[in-house]
Amino acid sequence: MPKDKSENHARIIPAARAEFLKKGFEKASMRSIAAAVGLTSAALYRHFADKEEMFAALVEPALKAFAEKAEAIKQRDYALLDNGNLDVMWGDDADLPLFLDVIYAHFDAFKLLVCCAEGTRYGHFVHDFVMMEQQETEDYLAEARRHGIPVKDILPQELHLLLSAYASAIFEVVVHDFTQEDAAHYLKTLQTFFYPGWRAVLGL
């Protein structure tokens, strides 16, 4: 990529982020973003085919990091089935603190996903996360049964409702712009509230 195009691209990203955060995807204007970096709209389209491609460039690195963290947690939790130490899943290094690190490493991107993505393919990010977690939980319970662990049965509808409440609570730190310090305190409260309930409902 020629140097001037690279430099323009680097200037476009923060301008696009600011525009989407301020107005949301649907009301954001390519013309306003172009003006903010001193380009014409035509010049902007040489960097991004359309507004959604620009939005994707802002959120995809965060989604990749989030997916990698989720996969690492999944692998750890399956390993716990083999050694029988399921208590680790509910300790200080459980899923909430690990996801918190990812969220705050990419906070603006998660703000875009949770609050500003309507009109894009990311517009149901929290719901999509819930659906993924529901499938992963159902698969994990089935594997636990194969390991002889007496987990409890839960209706899919019940699991979906509980996971929806859980996910919504997690992403409130993004909706309300918590500092990471405040978020860590809040998520400790969520752990205290949700984890005993999860263990009681799932039997893990």
Rank of each mutant, 00 (worst) to 15 (best):
A167F: 05
V102F: 04
A94L: 08
Y166Q: 10
V114F: 00
D108H: 12
L155P: 10
A56L: 02
T179V: 09
D139M: 00
K69E: 14
R76Y: 11
L113N: 03
G91C: 07
K51N: 12
L155I: 05
F66S: 04
F178M: 03
D93G: 09
H106F: 06
Y104N: 14
L100D: 03
L162Y: 12
A65K: 12
D108P: 14
P156F: 08
A56D: 15
R121D: 13
A56P: 01
D77E: 13
I149V: 15
F110Y: 06
L159T: 06
I170E: 04
I170R: 02
L58S: 06
V130I: 14
L81S: 14
G123W: 01
Q135A: 12
H176P: 03
K64P: 01
E138C: 07
R145V: 12
Q157M: 02
Q180M: 14
D153S: 15
T120Y: 00
L141D: 06
N83K: 10
A79K: 14
G123E: 07
V126L: 07
L100T: 09
K152Y: 05
V102M: 10
Y122M: 05
F178K: 02
M54S: 06
V173N: 02
R146W: 01
E53I: 04
V59L: 08
T120S: 02
D177Y: 11
Q157F: 07
E71F: 05
